Simulated scan of single mutants.
Amino acid sequence: MKEIKPFVTLVGAGPGDIELITLKGIRAIREADVILYDALVNEELLDYAKADCVKIYVGKRAERLSTSQDEINRLLVDYAQNYGHVVRLKGGDPFVFGRGGEELDYVHAYDIPTAVVPGISSSIGLTGLQQIPLTHRGISESFWVITGSTSDTNLSSDLQLAVKSKATVVILMGFAKLAQIAAQYQHEGRGALPIAVIQSGSTTEERVVLGTVDTIVDRVRAENIGAPAIIVLGDVVAKHAQFAETWKNIKQDVLS
């Protein structure tokens, strides 16, 4: 009988395009006895798993909850103890609002060894794919990555600080609060600030809406954009190839 050696690896799957996972991530998938994967993970990655690998969907997306975090934590331990190597496959990067730290804490309490394979966070990956530089000499010296919804479903208090900064701001899991976010920037007199909303970035369903803080809510509604989507605010958004034309149309709409 094969000796079971419990082990858990957190793997960042990247923002959606299967080619954006690391080689190390693919290797971990190939070696896994069990894979617990999220809603935002491209399921084509599961094709790399061995034939007898157990694949468990534990997806969570916005308000639609399929598996609680407490249950996911328990599954990680149970499967590791009974099967061996468990890969926790998470969209983006496990440590960028992926609750990877919480999962490691729980697994470590059972003295199960762990490893982490970093992934490309949507905050960096999707902006890069759109050729929006998060930092740019003379425009932005830093960037913030902020959650759009805290554990109590409120906007992060960090946003109140971010709106006063010249830094680029990327908001994850904040699409439902786009109007509130825009209102905070407007309150600071920054209604003309460029903004991008990127839906399902890096996938075949990718859609991008550009505008300003003052116009973005109406533009998103007109384009029927929905979650999952990230929000990017800052003068660097004007570096997007289509922003100049978008800005021209916005000014024409205002004049008319």
Rank of each mutant, 00 (worst) to 15 (best):
residue 3 E to R: 13
residue 3 E to K: 13
residue 9 T to R: 05
residue 10 L to N: 01
residue 11 V to F: 03
residue 11 V to K: 02
residue 14 G to P: 13
residue 18 I to G: 04
residue 25 G to E: 01
residue 25 G to Q: 02
residue 26 I to N: 08
residue 28 A to K: 15
residue 28 A to E: 15
residue 29 I to F: 14
residue 30 R to A: 07
residue 30 R to F: 06
residue 31 E to Y: 01
residue 38 D to W: 05
residue 39 A to T: 01
residue 39 A to F: 04
residue 40 L to S: 00
residue 44 E to D: 08
residue 47 D to M: 07
residue 47 D to Y: 10
residue 53 C to A: 15
residue 54 V to M: 13
residue 54 V to C: 08
residue 58 V to A: 12
residue 58 V to I: 15
residue 58 V to W: 07
residue 60 K to W: 07
residue 65 L to E: 09
residue 65 L to H: 14
residue 65 L to D: 05
residue 68 S to I: 06
residue 74 R to Q: 14
residue 76 L to H: 05
residue 82 N to T: 14
residue 83 Y to N: 05
residue 87 V to H: 10
residue 90 K to I: 09
residue 90 K to G: 07
residue 91 G to W: 10
residue 91 G to K: 08
residue 93 D to G: 04
residue 101 G to Y: 01
residue 107 V to N: 12
residue 110 Y to G: 05
residue 112 I to M: 00
residue 113 P to R: 00
residue 114 T to E: 02
residue 118 P to H: 09
residue 121 S to K: 05
residue 122 S to C: 13
residue 122 S to I: 06
residue 123 S to W: 01
residue 125 G to Y: 03
residue 129 L to Y: 09
residue 130 Q to T: 12
residue 130 Q to N: 14
residue 132 I to L: 04
residue 137 R to V: 01
residue 138 G to F: 12
residue 140 S to C: 15
residue 142 S to L: 04
residue 148 G to K: 01
residue 151 S to Q: 06
residue 159 L to K: 03
residue 161 L to A: 02
residue 168 T to K: 11
residue 169 V to K: 13
residue 170 V to L: 07
residue 171 I to C: 08
residue 171 I to G: 09
residue 175 F to W: 10
residue 177 K to R: 15
residue 179 A to M: 06
residue 180 Q to G: 11
residue 184 Q to V: 02
residue 185 Y to Q: 08
residue 186 Q to S: 12
residue 186 Q to C: 10
residue 192 A to K: 13
residue 195 I to M: 13
residue 196 A to L: 00
residue 197 V to A: 01
residue 202 S to E: 10
residue 203 T to A: 05
residue 205 E to M: 08
residue 214 D to E: 13
residue 214 D to Q: 09
residue 215 T to H: 07
residue 218 D to M: 01
residue 220 V to K: 04
residue 221 R to C: 00
residue 228 P to C: 09
residue 231 I to N: 06
residue 234 G to R: 13
residue 235 D to F: 11
residue 235 D to T: 06
residue 236 V to Y: 10
residue 238 A to N: 05
residue 240 H to D: 02
residue 243 F to S: 10
residue 249 N to K: 13
residue 251 K to N: 05
residue 254 V to I: 12
residue 254 V to H: 06
